[in-house]
Write a protein that binds this DNA or RNA. Structure first.
Lengths: 194, 194
DNA sequence: CCAATTTTGTACCAAATAGTACAGTTTATT
DNA sequence: AATAAACTGTACTATTTGGTACAAAATTGG
């Protein structure tokens, strides 16, 4: 168990890579962009990520799930009113202070940016979006169990509805700078949770 | 006004370029891909499109608007029940026979695929999505005028709702192969037009 | 301190990239 | 047929791409 120690923190440089991918998109992010942002040399990079750019992106997706989705899930399991939480979450997407900024959804972006022959990455992105769908579904189910929802719709259908809303907003944000219009749009969609 | 005539049809090669961009994405489509599909040489290409790939993409967007959106608008102005037309349109997106296939929306894709420093292309894509929004809004307004809609929501808000649904579906399609789930999702969304 | 092990930086490379230069070809007008 | 205009194909280039090779460096256990 000897050996020269890493001089960087693996999660720290992953976070840097996430930033670059999110900002520039998978296809447009060059290895140089990434290395520069991560602040490591090619040697270290190809040593740590033998699969090159693709492996880095795969790990960066894991990291984003860990940082973002898991946080949502945790918050949902502890909060008293999951329905209100969902509503607040979506409304928060329409403001400047959005956690996502204008960069969209990491996974939705991936589905659209990754070239067709990288089917593996696409499948992973799809899988994580399904995870988000599940999280929404669980929240709705919990809301139903608590008697907070009148709707006849099954929780799973509402989960699908919400992940589709998420996908939509993350594109619509980019064409619609008017935050009031976005907020109205979200509110209109959230009526389904009354 | 002399000179050798073109040996190719400008719109025909544009259509080929559209195919490539739609299939591979803007960033992933190389000049070679495009030239090969268009069946012309570099000389002809850079003569016809002095702006290179970017100009080609700009013109390809115009072409897609011309071919797709204008057709929708025309169909809407002539049809008796614009509300039903909208519903059928969205439901058609969930099937195999979708006009869009799994390639998504040309302009939504562009918003997500084009690199940040190509702000010009992004603005054009956003503009065309706003055109689609307008088309939806007009259809809804017409539906209201004809007494086909009970909703209190303003037509413009519903237009925004529908373009957001469009944006969402075009991403969600890529993560959700189950067409029945997609169809249910669309039906749930279209209840707002009852 | 020596050896084993792991990490790092630099130099290098082959392929692919978008784009240019330009000579030559084809046609309409005269 | 001569000429001007419009078009086309080929050869070329400079840059950037992702990726490899490998020797040197840093650390720990013996």
């Amino acid at each position: 168990m000897a050996g020269r120690p890493k001089i960087y923190d693996e999660t720290a440089i992953l976070d840097k890579a996430v930033e670059v991918f999110w900002e520039k998109g998978y296809a447009n992010a060059t290895a140089d962009d990434l290395l520069h942002a991560m602040g490591i040399g090619k040697g270290s990079f190809y040593f740590a990520f033998k699969g090159g750019k693709e492996e880095l992106f795969r790990k960066s997706m894991e990291r984003v799930v860990e940082l973002n989705f898991k946080a949502i899930r945790d918050a949902l399991t502890t909060c008293a009113d999951p329905v209100q939480f969902i509503k607040d979450f979506f409304l928060s997407l329409t403001g400047n202070e959005s956690p996502v900024g204008n960069k969209g959804c990491y996974f939705g972006n991936a589905l659209i940016q990754v070239s067709a022959d990288d089917a593996g990455l696409k499948m992973i992105a799809a899988k994580y979006l399904h995870l988000l769908e599940e999280i929404f579904t669980e929240a709705v189910q919990k809301g139903k169990d608590l008697g907070l929802l009148q709707t006849q719709e099954p929780a799973a259908a509402l989960g699908t509805y919400l992940v589709n809303l998420w996908n939509g907003i993350n594109v619509t944000r980019r064409m619609e700078p008017d935050q009031r219009k976005l907020a109205d749009l979200v509110r209109m969609n959230l009526k389904i949770l009354d």
